[in-house]
Structure formats: C-alpha cells, structure tokens
Measured scan of single mutants.
Amino acid sequence: RTVKALYDYKAKRSDELSFCRGALIHNVSKEPGGWWKGDYGTRIQQYFPSNYVEDI
C-alpha cells in the first residue's frame, strides 16, 4: 500500500517520518490512534499522521 503526502511534515520524535508534500510513502500499515507506519527514503516503518496523506 502506498500513500501520497498532502502536506509537509517534520518529525517530532526519532520514530517518526519527515516528508514533504507530494512524497510517496510505501509499505503503509494502518495503526490505531491516527498514526500509521510506512517507508520513506532510508526510514523504514516509521510513524506518520494519517491525516497528512491520501491513498493513491
């Protein structure tokens, strides 16, 4: 599953992803609480806010 970032996001913790608008995040798994995990660049299975992305 791949999603596309709608907005920039700067990680606030070491287990979160930072990305820019338009970024493609791969291998996404839905987690409870509005935070999902995914791969972006060299960061593997890190958290990001689900309301910052859309399915593609």
Rank of each mutant, 00 (worst) to 15 (best):
Q45I: 03
P32Q: 14
S18A: 02
W35Y: 14
N27K: 04
W35Q: 08
Y52I: 12
G34H: 11
A23V: 07
W36T: 01
I44G: 02
Y52F: 14
G38S: 00
I25S: 00
L24W: 06
P32S: 13
V53G: 01
R43E: 13
D55W: 10
D39G: 02
N51T: 13
V53P: 00
T42A: 12
K4W: 06
D8N: 12
K12Q: 12
D15I: 13
L6V: 06
Y7C: 11
D39W: 02
E54D: 07
L24Q: 08
A11Q: 10
T42Q: 08
W36V: 00
Y7T: 08
R43M: 13
D15F: 11
Y40N: 08
L24N: 09
N27S: 05
Q46W: 06
S50Y: 14
R21A: 11
Q46R: 10
C20H: 15
Y9M: 00
N51A: 13
S50R: 14
L24R: 07
N51S: 15
S18V: 01
D8V: 00
R13G: 07
K4D: 02
D8P: 10
Y9V: 00
Q46H: 14
G34A: 12
L17P: 02
E31L: 13
R13N: 07
D8E: 10
A11P: 05
W35C: 05
A23S: 10
K10T: 13
D55N: 13
T42H: 15
I25G: 00
D55V: 09
G41E: 11
P32G: 11
G34W: 05
V53S: 04
V3C: 08
Q46V: 03
L6G: 03
I44Y: 11
A11L: 00
G38V: 02
A23D: 15
R13K: 08
L17E: 02
Y52G: 02
N27M: 03
L24Y: 14
L24E: 12
T2A: 08
A11D: 00
Q46D: 03
G22K: 09
F48I: 03
Y52P: 01
L24S: 04
A23E: 13
E54A: 11
G38L: 00
D39A: 00
V28S: 02
C20N: 13
E16K: 02
G33I: 12
W35E: 09
H26S: 14
T2F: 03
G33F: 09
G41T: 03
Y52H: 09
E54R: 11
D15Q: 09
D39F: 05
H26L: 12
Y7H: 13
K10G: 06
S50T: 06
N51H: 15
K37H: 07
C20E: 15
G38K: 00
H26E: 13
Y52N: 04
H26W: 12
Q45N: 08
N51Y: 10
S14K: 10
I44Q: 08
Y47T: 11
N51V: 11
I25Y: 01
Y52K: 11
E54T: 08
S50A: 15
V53Q: 03
Y9K: 02
N51D: 14
I25F: 04
G22V: 01
G38W: 02
R13Q: 07
D39P: 02
E31Q: 12
T42N: 15
Y9D: 02
Y40H: 14
I44W: 06
G34M: 11
N51L: 08
S29K: 08
I44R: 13
R21L: 02
S14W: 07
R13D: 08
A5H: 00
L6S: 08
K10I: 07
P32L: 13
W36P: 05
L17Y: 05
L17K: 01
G34N: 15
K4E: 09
K4C: 12
G41C: 04
S50W: 06
K12S: 08
G34P: 14
W36M: 11
G22L: 00
R43Y: 09
S50E: 12
R21G: 07
G33Q: 04
G41R: 09
R21Y: 06
K30H: 12
Y47H: 05
D8L: 03
Y7F: 15
G22D: 09
A5E: 01
D8S: 12
K30N: 10
W35M: 09
R13Y: 11
W36C: 11
I44S: 05
E16T: 05
A11E: 02
N27H: 05
Q45L: 01
Y52M: 14
G38A: 02
N51C: 15
I25P: 01
P32D: 12
A11Y: 03
G41M: 08
G38D: 03
C20F: 10
P32T: 10
R21E: 08
R1S: 13
G33V: 02
D8W: 04
V3M: 13
Q46M: 14
E31H: 08
R21N: 12
S14T: 07
T2L: 07
I25T: 01
R13P: 03
L24I: 11
Y40E: 06
N51G: 13
Y7E: 11
S50K: 15
S50Q: 06
R1G: 07
L6W: 01
S14A: 14
Q45F: 00
E54C: 09
V28L: 00
F19W: 02
L6P: 03
N27W: 00
Y7S: 11
